[in-house]
């Protein structure tokens, strides 16, 4: 047996000891997830209401909970404190210079409010609210956005019937159609324009950190 043939044989024996190569459908790793475990983590709520827990809460209950748990950042009426998110108002601003994207003016789905409050709020004390409390806070937020009346009681049963005003104004990514002009295999290389003028200077605003001067209020935010 040649030297290389012998090392092949050795390698073959090595593989056999590991009972052959594993393939994805033969994975023996992991263990079954128990129903209690899935229940503990699976708190997501879909726009069609799938995932909503049993429970209910009124606008007035929500008002009290909101003042105690949320108003420090979001303001008494959801108007937002400092740069914290504004939750109410803003209707009719989406085409304006400074759009105010709130639950009532922008968000497409009521379920998102429930899901997000339940999963991530109050900021720093996530997942401490009980389902009834979340229903009540969502009811109050809907009331602040003129979606429900003052005496409304939100529950698992009536939840899917509550629609937000801006829902119809979302559509799927269409860049490959509406921005087809950007697929241009032959961009201009020479004499592409007769003259070039500077139209905007960052130094005018001067909002760069460490720039050393106080500037105007900057535009934009990371959301």
């Amino acid at each position: 047996m040649s030297r290389s043939a012998r090392s092949c044989a050795v390698a073959g024996a090595f593989l056999l000891a590991f009972t052959g190569l594993a393939s994805a459908d033969a994975v023996k790793l992991g263990r079954p997830a128990l129903p209690e475990e899935i229940k503990a983590w699976d708190i997501d709520v879909r726009p069609d209401g799938l995932g909503l827990p049993e429970g209910k809460g009124s606008v007035s209950q929500g008002e009290e909970l909101f003042q105690n748990n949320c108003a420090a950042c979001h303001g008494e009426f959801g108007e937002g404190v400092g740069r914290w998110p504004v939750l109410a108002g803003g209707q009719g601003t989406l085409k304006s210079e400074r759009p105010e994207k709130t639950i009532g003016s922008f968000w497409p789905d009521t379920s998102t409010v429930f899901d997000y409050v339940h999963r991530a709020m109050p900021f720093g004390a996530a997942q401490t609210l009980q389902p009834d409390e979340v229903y009540a806070i969502v009811a109050y937020l809907l009331y602040l956005n003129d979606v429900v009346a003052e005496d409304y009681v939100l529950s698992k049963e009536n939840f899917p019937k509550v629609a937000l005003p801006n829902q119809a104004n979302f559509y799927d990514d269409d860049r490959e159609i509406t921005e087809k002009a950007f697929w241009n295999a032959q961009p201009c290389m020479k004499d592409c324009k007769p003259k070039v003028e500077i139209t905007s200077h960052a130094a005018v605003l001067d909002v760069t950190p460490d720039a050393g001067k106080e500037g105007d209020k900057p535009a934009g935010a990371v959301e």
């Binding site: 997501d44 709520v45 879909r46 726009p47 994207k101 639950i103 922008f106 968000w107 497409p108 789905d109 379920s111 998102t112 899901d115 997000y116 991530a120 979302f170």
Partner: peptide, 8 residues
């Protein structure tokens, strides 16, 4: 799932 980070 219409989560916050894909809607609002």
């Amino acid at each position: 799932w219409g989560q916050r980070e894909e809607t609002s």
